[in-house]
Design a protein around this nucleic acid. Structure first.
Lengths: 196, 196, 196, 196
DNA sequence: CTCTAACCGAGACGGTACGTCTGGTCTTCCG
DNA sequence: CGGAAGACCAGACGTACCGTCTCGGTTAGAG
């Protein structure tokens, strides 16, 4: 029924993924076409349709990192400082033009196609969030952060504001902004003293 | 050069905007076409192209509320409670299927077209954020919140986590989640005691 | 439903028919493509599909003569001589390379598509046969040919052998062959003396 | 270089020819594809390309009769009667739907591919014509027909009209028509008395 | 009775063309 | 003269086949 993966040409696969990445930079996601990818990759259209169900799926796979195992976050003993470092990195990534293009393309596909979107989030985003959660867990153990903190909420408190500003372009994404968000989020995550 | 707006047929304009809204629900943004809108509205394509520069612009205008002046947020004297109410309303809106569809369509267009996106944000989002900021200002005056709080950061701390979870579908958007986010954000916004 | 012929662009129509004729000569019927016609004519594919149901229909229309009213056959008073003239003309036409190409293309379409084939035969062939029948009728009136001759059979007796040899390439099509066929066919069409 | 015929799988060969014949009836020549044949025959495409140069060649071979040596024509002593029998048989064959389909497929290929066409004519048609010529020769010996009759012309005079009517569908192919053509053709072939 | 070369089924590959759909522009005619 | 209607050029869509090319797995004849 579905094609035999052992017969698949790795050569063509790589050419398609590379061409997709290049075209994404050159012409943008809105002008990305299957025909364009096939032509640039020197490949028949059917070879794309045989292995991917949609344009979004090709783009997604073309952007999945070759995934060496993600390095753990730094742990200086000061969780707030470490999270500032993380958020500054995120902000920098959002400010890098070609990474921004790619990320917006992914975001559009997340909105367009829930199924594919879920996979993108799981494969591209969750591993990053997981690293952050790991650092937060360590901070819980040292008592820097509240023991009963919901870690999923915590990462959203950290990254949500940055996403919001990036997506909606309501203000510039600066390193200082990253610091502010990190500080405030950590403030909310610390063990709350008497209050309550 | 550009068409004379006094000659414009209000009848056609309304038909186009209504047809756009209906099609957005029926077929989704990805399958929304200018031809489809023209046909459903009983209008020539040229009439659309004459008055709007792009598909996104038509959609945007079709979704702009008839804008009675937005009511101010409630002020019970307890800013945290009031913000919980606000976030619960946002969550409910994100959980209403046809509003979700519309919002995702807008989000896609924000990513696609920065110029149009800016306008959308200004006309549809900023007024809502402004109301929230107003409530926060009141809370600053009563001393509930820190006097030096950056209000733009504050609203992002409130709405960012909800956007993040909605956009990426990482976990269900529940009223309890709204409460948690509101509480934590407010915790970060209160005057910080000795610390610092 | 079907397109409004009053809106039709005569410019495009002529460009398409001309391009079709040229391509028929250049690349042959087997390599004639709709895309090729559209490109050569500087026309969108849809403009072809809007007005013609098939490749054969375009080709057919491109080959229909601008039809000034066909001149009558010569009448020298000697029907056999006149028919030799006619058959020699047919043979010459079959021996002209680009006319042969066109005629074989038409023949293929006659076999392929009975409906279109019928129309081709009626519009392209029948008028020629009718002229011949007219000449035969005159010969019947002068007593040269049998009064009870079935004219449809008569024209088939004249042209059938030539078609046969042309189609099947069983032997060269020479003027002498035309003469022989004309003579024998006329012999069969003359009033048969005692016999009967 | 070219494949070793001793290794050829007779099983596959037969499966291909059978599948071709079946598909010719089922879907028609225009919709006959190599892939379809391969699939129906349970055979790889390469096995077809290895042994035949073109679709037409496969079809041709699939239609070549198993050729027991063709029986001679009847000889009742009355050449006109015998030829009526022959032409009635031809007419009947043209009126048999699946034989008609096959014959039109062959005709198309004759027009398309002169080289293959020549082979088709030689292998499928000429043997039949030869039998007819043999009968005509016998009639020449008995004096029924003119001694100087060109036999190639003679068979074309007999079969040409029938081909013409069949190909162009200008009128129904009836047994009476066969009789008429036979009678007139024979009239033209008899020794011409004084006339000329 | 192996060994090995060729054929075999299968089907992926780079391509071409199909017929359809939509985008954005241009043209015609109606009110 | 604006607007409905829709034809126009352009070109991407996803599908069907083309003819070539691997891939293992028989299979048959030479050693």
């Amino acid at each position: 029924m579905s094609p035999d993966p052992t017969r698949r040409s790795e050569r063509s696969r790589q050419a398609i993924l590379t061409a997709t990445r290049e075209l994404l930079f050159d012409v943008g996601y809105g002008n990305l076409t299957i025909e364009g990818i096939a032509h640039r990759a020197g490949v028949g259209k059917q070879t794309i349709y045989r292995w991917w169900p949609s344009k979004g799926a090709v783009m997604f796979e073309s952007l999945v990192p070759a995934d060496g195992p993600d390095a753990a976050l730094p742990d200086t003993g000061d969780v707030e400082a470490d999270l500032r470092t993380v958020l500054r990195a995120v902000v920098e990534q959002f400010n890098t033009p070609h990474l921004e293009r790619m990320t917006r393309a992914l975001a559009i596909e997340v909105h367009n196609d829930p199924v594919l979107g879920r996979e993108m989030v799981e494969r591209l985003l969750q591993p990053q969030l997981e690293l952050t959660k790991e650092r937060l867990r360590a901070a819980q153990r040292t008592g820097e952060l509240a023991a009963d903190l919901d870690l999923q909420v915590a990462v959203e408190l950290l990254f949500g504001p940055v996403f919001h500003r990036w997506m909606l372009r309501t203000a510039p994404l600066t390193p200082e902004y990253a610091d502010t968000v990190a500080s405030m989020a950590v403030a909310a995550m610390r063990p709350q003293p008497a209050r309550r």
